[in-house]
Design a binder for these strands. Structure first.
Length: 937
RNA sequence: GCCUAGGUGGCGGAAUUGGUAGACGCGCUGGAUUCAAAAUCCAGUUCUUUCGGGAGUGUGGGUUCGAUUCCCACCCUAGGUACCA
């Protein structure tokens, strides 16, 4: 066998592992490079070909950086807490840790086969107590901090307490949801519970009531994801909105910095846009509308205070706390019915259903703060409780949703814009002149805005305000398989367990479901109470109301562990700190982060938030975790289908299926090759097909149909990398995954082309060997043409790597090998450089060829990236494409040194030009030297 | 609904700053080699055509000497939409 990839790859995998070729140490004499992958959740299905796409890209880039002399940190680990293992535990009773361990092992085996240059000594697992000890520790830091807007950073809570003790809270400028004001004296007079409650309103992680999708039948909270058409995906049970006491993260405090921080990171504009829109900064004013008969106030946030005279009704979210209070007897029944119906809808449904306008009048009226008019108060599900104040002042002439609502319910639409027709639609532009608005009439929108805000502030109705769509993030989960909180409740007051007793490890439970009283799964734990004297967990019976108290029953969400893991890789086994100062000072933030764009508003926002927080407290020296990011696209599966003739066991080939009534059936892609079904394998696939009969194409084959769709077990279209590594080798897989297309685009997985890449590697092998597989390499000066090929390739590979265009890089290698084969080049100098260039993409074969070129084993990983020399590429003639009216007609070979004028003269004089000019004089001639000639006739 | 991305031959894709549309690979067709096959090598391969040419990058319009590339409107597909990770 000539290119024996199996032998070669096995050899080098072993070599790298035994020699720890990719072990990384801090080295102050070398520039550092930190290349990171989003770590995987180890699912039971194992790694499929979509996973390695990003890993291969980052591995190529990390290897490239090593060749450039960087000290490279390139680690891998696992986001090993998560729902699937818990779901499996619920079904089978098997502890999620066991499932997870088994899955991890499989992932590792699969990863090992692909030739990644990870430093496995740095592996982390979020579900490992030695890891989540520090997740709990960070949670405690958040609990013990608040956000001070004067310092514009997080500050330890002790400083806030000190302020309360000396000045109360009136002069405190902090992010909070504290509704009362108090003096120092009052503060000191509050009891412990009251003080705790007030501090809770300032802490960066805090307990508060949040709306959740509650499914009473399942006794659990559901993600929007798990709800289909208003009922639970599992079981089809009804779901309702419920307020629940939960931990939240005061990420809102960081809204502005999360926004401005985007300017200094090198991410795609699309991800930045997604985050910007998610944060959703808007400026305007908060305004209080008094209710009729002194029944209180409705506070709204509006971005258009200038349109306040256009208000003709108000709308509250159905869940708004005032609704019950203000609804009149007459409308009570309808309002409650409406609230109930709205409560059954998910937030997403409510936002999507813009065509079905719904709402209900409450019978209550507010008083317009300027005109004194009576304004009806409605409830409507287009107003969301979680955004702004959960109430809007509706200005139908200026907002399309308000307009539609008004039309639907026949509410008056007041036009407050000069010379604007609103008979068909609202006028939502932020320009024009305001009319019919008393003191605002005649003003431009901008001036009216300023004046309206001034008047609102003057009358004490509200103030200018910046609002963010970003909501504080709920941090509690009613699940088992997550980090337990290091929290117990002493007389209902949450208390943190001291650092030296961390980690608080997950307790054993006999079942993983919620308890019968609807408590989270940890409610099933028997030993889940904290003794404040002995500082240990005790059995729940020991709870005594004096020194042994109940522990928190929720666990942390999936994003807790993943919000800081990139720091732990720097110092994975440190038992005293989450990361040592000198290590984080050396490695700094991630230079290149590769992962999916689907994390734009989750993980990527939370990780930034925690990083800024840790920066504020002086734990890390940077406030953005990921300097540069590339988002890899999803890999879709290509399913194959057979067509069963109705009510028979006969299968008709794709080309003839239209002649019959057929049912399309997914068929395992492993028994299909280039759409041709292996008929015998199909008969053996399942018993029911053993006696299958076939109607074949005229050439005697059975052709399958195909479709590109999500890769999934049930569709029999999952490609796992192991089979491909087995069949073609890891180097082929690596290059093929890159060759598929641009890294950032979704693309279908199809193994049809993998042969081409494999052939390329064989062709490369043949450059070094004769027909009998003996190494034949010539020494001495290289041929000029070969040098040109080489340097063209160096330039291309370098440029393509710099712009993360891995697919075009593979093409460049193919072109190079094709050209060198044509030249019969086996020159050592050329092949050496080519081997180094290729080594990031195909490391195993590169290692093998490198030793054949006479180098020491293993040294190619730290070789020097070849230098590009322009001189080998200089051309003295260029074939100008000559266009007439932009249409290319012929080429004219002319010296590159020729002036613009001479090119024009030469081209016009050519016989072919005369043909297209048809005797007429050209209207215009454009010559771009070294590029193109265009003649306008 | 909203936010983001994408749409180019039979297929994956290339065209980096507005300058030769279809690089490279697959597939397909024909040929060489072979007893035969595999492998390999060579040639061809956007569509259409009266063989002069004509059309062509989701659709319709615009800017330009010139548009896959820029602008406007629309259609389709994918991802996200706050408890999937």
């Amino acid at each position: 066998m000539e290119y024996n990839f199996q032998e070669i790859e096995q050899k080098w995998r072993k070599f790298w592992a035994e020699n720890k070729t990719f072990k990384t140490e801090e080295n102050k004499d070398k520039k550092k490079f930190y290349g990171l992958d989003m770590f995987p959740y180890p699912s039971g299905a194992g790694l499929h070909v979509g996973h390695p796409l990003g890993y291969i890209a980052s591995d190529i880039f990390s290897r490239y950086k090593r060749l450039q002399g960087y000290n490279v940190l390139h680690p891998m680990g696992y986001d090993s807490f998560g729902l699937p293992a818990e779901q499996y535990a619920i079904q089978t009773g098997q502890h999620p840790a066991i499932t997870t361990e088994a899955n991890l092992k499989r992932y590792r085996e699969q990863l090992d086969k692909i030739g990644f240059s990870f430093d496995w000594d740095r592996e982390v697992r979020t579900s490992d107590p030695s890891y989540y000890k520090w997740t709990q520790w960070i949670f405690k830091q958040l609990f013990n901090a608040y956000y001070d807007y004067d310092a514009n950073k997080a500050v330890v809570i002790d400083e806030l307490i000190a302020k309360f003790e000396t000045e109360g809270n009136t002069s405190v400028n902090a992010e909070h949801n504290c509704e009362i004001e108090f003096t120092a004296e009052e503060w000191k007079a509050f009891d412990a519970k009251k003080q705790s409650d007030i501090l809770m309103d300032y802490r960066l992680t805090y307990l508060a009531d949040s709306w959740v999708n509650w499914c009473p039948a399942l006794g659990t909270v559901l993600a929007n994801d798990e709800i289909v058409n208003g009922v639970s995906e599992r079981g089809g049970h009804p779901v309702e909105q419920k307020l629940m006491r939960q931990w939240s993260m005061r990420i809102k405090a960081y809204a502005e910095r999360l926004l401005t921080g985007l300017e200094k990171v090198d991410w795609t504009d699309s991800i930045k846009d997604i985050q910007r829109n998610w944060i959703g900064k808007s400026t305007g004013a908060s305004v209080r509308f008094a209710l009729e008969n002194g029944a209180g106030n409705i506070e709204v946030f509006t971005t258009r205070p200038d349109t306040i005279y256009g208000v003709s009704f108000m709308v509250l979210a159905p869940e708004h706390e005032l609704v019950a209070q203000i609804t009149t007897e007459e409308y009570k029944e309808q309002v409650e019915a409406y609230q109930k119906a709205a409560g059954l809808k998910s937030e997403r449904d409510r936002m999507s259903e813009t065509k079905n306008i719904s709402g209900q009048f409450t019978g209550a009226y507010a008083i317009h703060p300027f005109s004194g008019e009576k304004i009806p108060v409605w409830i409507g599900d287009y107003v969301l409780a979680s955004y702004g104040t959960g109430a809007v002042m509706a200005v139908p002439c200026g907002d399309q949703r308000d307009y539609d609502f008004a039309k639907h319910f026949d509410i008056a639409i007041k036009n407050i814009f000069e010379d604007v027709d609103i008979s068909e639609a609202a006028y939502a532009e932020k320009s024009g002149t305001i009319a019919n608005s008393d003191f605002l009439s005649g003003l431009e929108v901008k001036e009216a805005m300023a004046k309206a805000i001034a008047a609102i502030e003057e009358k004490g109705l509200g103030k200018a305000k910046v609002n963010y769509r970003l909501r504080d993030a709920v941090f509690s989960r009613q699940r088992y398989w997550g980090e337990p909180f290091p929290v117990y409740y002493e007389n209902g007051i949450p208390k943190m367990i001291e650092d030296e007793f961390l980690p608080i490890t997950l307790p054993e439970v006999d079942k993983y479901l919620p308890t019968e009283d609807g408590e989270p799964p940890l409610g099933n734990a028997k030993t889940w109470s904290w003794c404040i004297n002995k500082k240990i967990l005790k059995d729940n019976e020991k709870q005594n109301g004096t020194c042994t108290w109940p522990m928190e029953l929720n666990t942390m969400p999936g994003w807790a562990g993943s919000s800081w893991y990139f720091l732990r890789y720097m110092d994975p086994s440190n038992e005293n700190e989450f990361v040592a100062k000198d290590k984080v000072d050396y490695w700094q933030n991630v230079d290149l982060y590769i992962g999916g764009a689907e994390h734009a508003t989750g993980h990527l926002l939370y990780a930034r938030f925690w990083c800024k927080f840790l920066y504020d407290l002086g734990f890390v020296p940077f406030d953005e975790p990921f300097k540069k990011m590339i988002n890899q696209g999803m890999i879709l599966g290509r399913s194959s289908f057979v067509y069963r003739v109705k009510d028979t066991n006969t299968f008709v080939s794709f080309g003839k299926r239209k002649d019959y009534q057929t049912t399309r059936i997914h068929v395992d892609i492993n028994i299909v090759d280039n759409d041709k079904l292996d008929v015998e394998a199909f008969k053996n696939w399942r018993p029911e097909f053993a006696n299958a009969e076939f109607i074949l194409e005229d050439d005697g084959t059975y052709v399958c149909g195909h479709e590109v769709e999500k890769m999934s077990k049930s569709k029999f279209n999952v490609q796992n990398p192991d089979d491909l590594v087995e069949k073609y080798g890891a180097d082929t897989l690596r290059m093929y995954e890159m060759f598929l297309g641009p890294i950032d685009q979704a693309k279908p997985w199809d193994t049809k082309g993998i042969n081409g890449v494999h052939n390329f590697l064989r062709k490369l092998w043949r450059l070094f060997h004769d027909a009998e597989n003996n190494v034949v390499i010539s020494e001495g000066e290289a041929d000029k043409k070969a040098l040109k090929t080489l340097h063209k390739t160096i330039k291309k590979i370098h440029e393509d790597l710099e712009r993360f265009s891995f697919n075009t890089g593979v093409s460049a290698f193919m072109i190079a090998v094709n050209e060198l084969t044509e030249l019969k080049c086996n020159n050592k100098e050329i092949l050496e450089s080519l081997t180094i260039l290729l080594s990031p993409y195909a490391p195993h074969i590169a290692e093998e060829l490198w030793t054949k070129l006479g180098h020491e084993a293993g040294t190619i990983s730290y070789a020097t990236f070849p230098e590009f020399k322009e001189e080998y590429l200089v051309e003295d003639a260029f074939a100008y494409p000559v266009s007439f009216n932009g249409k290319m007609r012929f080429k004219a070979e002319l010296p590159t040194s020729m002036s613009k004028e001479d090119v024009e003269k030469e081209v016009l004089a050519m016989e072919q030009s005369q043909k297209y000019l048809e005797g007429k004089a050209p209207k215009k001639v454009i010559v771009v030297p070294g590029r193109i000639v265009n003649i306008v006739v």
